[in-house]
Amino acid sequence: MVMSAAGTLAALRGSIERIETQGAACCQRKVPLGHAEADAHLQGGLALAAVHEVFAGAGRQTAAATGFIAGLARRVAARRPLVWIRQDFTEVEAGAVSMDGLSELGLDPRLLVTVRAADVDQALRTTADALACDAVGAVVLEVWGEVKQLDLVASRRLTLAAQASGATGLVLRMAAEPRASTAESRWIVRAAHSPPASHPSSAWGSPLFEAQLVRNRHGPTGRWIMEWKCDECLFGKPAAYPQPVAAAPAYRPHQAQSVFKRKPAPDAIRGGYRLA
């Protein structure tokens, strides 16, 4: 009799837990990025109270990745304080984040608090602290290189802190390869070309990113060219860019003799616009 009562209790607890977690999943707050397809893939937008990772693409793509993460932070944090945590080393390697630059992208430098951590351990610890504070809109952690401290355990700790407080964590990884983590979404970002112009000295437009969504816990992955609209503070499709991007033809005989002397494009997007 006692056993069966305990069993019933356990079963009830289990079902309550299921109901609760399902409720949490469907009530998860999201912020639309503004790019229709990306939002559809993300089922409404970037999840708040979670951790997202942005990797800089191979080569010197740090500034593009920084721009992309600044955009995400602006969408997520809106008018709330933003904490930006970085190691001392990144500043030498990739330059310091400039307040004028952030302000040009539509972020408010008045809401920014920067933490200059001496090493990765300090940076991770500080990030967990900052994520546990519910007054913070978003926390950006900048990490350079492959670091063994940022493993599954550390990543889980950040995710738990974010879930508990409702703050959103954004991890900017430079000179690193994606690894297993508990991130809600993971992006690889490269700079995209400005659309071809009639005159070579004509000005460029808004920042353009080639963003590849390589991990998405609740939906498919994808790859888009995104434009950050500095005035509306929204991502969007670049207007002047040849859209939609067609799949690369299977047979492209003139690829090697391209007058542009570029290395073969690894993806469909490049090819698409060059032919256009």
Binding site: A63, G95, V97, G101, L105, G106, S206
Partner: peptide, 15 residues
């Protein structure tokens, strides 16, 4: 910021 203009200042600045 001047509305309608692309960014005129870089995002990352070398000291």
């Amino acid at each position: 910021r001047v509305a309608g203009e692309p960014p005129l200042r870089p995002l990352r600045l070398f000291e």
